[in-house]
Structure formats: structure tokens, C-alpha cells
């Protein structure tokens, strides 16, 4: 059972006190340009997921603490958390640089577009 730490209220506890909320940094196209979304874009948003063996970025909620959502960077093989960061933030720069595969591509684009999440 993992130990999770909420970056908002500082509560640290068992994973059962938290809620795992899947992949982080998924962009919802309808919030931006609802009139121009292709079926494939909508599919990507709903279903296509980064699924790396290794460093991964995901959403958690401090279920039994402050109730806030936040982000975490975690290794899916060792299950070690590498960082906890705010729901409106990008991960620490060194983690973005360590990311592989589709995540590396994602952060490259995000950084190119400016760091606003």
C-alpha cells in the first residue's frame, strides 16, 4: 500500500485515504474549441492513454483530507512517488526531462508552447 502526500494540505497517508484519478495533463478539447473537434480528437481525449512502464504522471485526490485534487509523478514499476505538485502545475523540470516515450513528446510540446499548464 502506497504512502501518498497531498501537496495542498500536507496530509500524508495510506493510498486508501486518497483517490487515484488516472492520467494527468489530459487536455479536454471541448473546454477550448468545442465547435471544432474531430472524432479522432475526441477519442484521444476519452480513451488514448500514456501507459509507460516507468515514470508516469497522474492525478490524485486527497479524499479524506482536504478534498483537493493534485498531481503526482510516480514510477509504475517501482511504485515510488517522485513528486507531488499542484493540479494547475506542470511537474518539476527535471522530471519532465526524465520522461520517456509519449510523455517526453508531450512535455516537449508543452514547454515549447510556454509552461502554462
Amino acid at each position: 500500500m502506497l504512502v501518498v502526500k497531498c501537496p495542498v494540505c500536507g496530509a500524508e497517508g495510506d493510498e486508501t485515504d486518497f483517490h487515484a484519478g488516472g492520467q494527468a495533463h489530459v487536455r479536454r478539447p471541448a473546454s477550448h474549441d468545442p465547435a471544432n473537434i474531430s472524432d479522432a480528437e475526441q477519442r484521444d481525449y476519452l480513451f488514448i492513454r500514456h501507459n509507460p512502464k516507468g515514470l508516469h504522471f497522474e492525478r490524485w485526490r486527497c479524499d479524506r483530507g482536504c478534498g483537493k485534487w493534485f498531481h503526482a509523478a510516480r514510477d509504475t514499476l517501482t511504485l515510488e512517488f517522485k513528486a507531488f505538485y499542484g493540479i494547475a502545475e506542470l511537474p518539476p523540470r527535471e522530471l519532465m526531462e526524465q520522461a520517456n516515450g509519449p510523455w517526453a513528446e508531450y512535455f516537449r510540446q508543452r514547454l515549447a508552447a510556454g509552461t502554462k499548464p
Partner: peptide, 13 residues
């Protein structure tokens, strides 16, 4: 409404 949850998916084929 331009957007509400689920709206765009209602347009999937």
C-alpha cells in the same frame, strides 16, 4: 450551449 459534459460525444458516429 457551446459545451456541457458529454456534449461532444453525443456527436460521435
Amino acid at each position: 450551449k457551446a459545451d456541457f459534459l458529454g456534449k461532444r460525444s453525443l456527436q460521435q458516429p
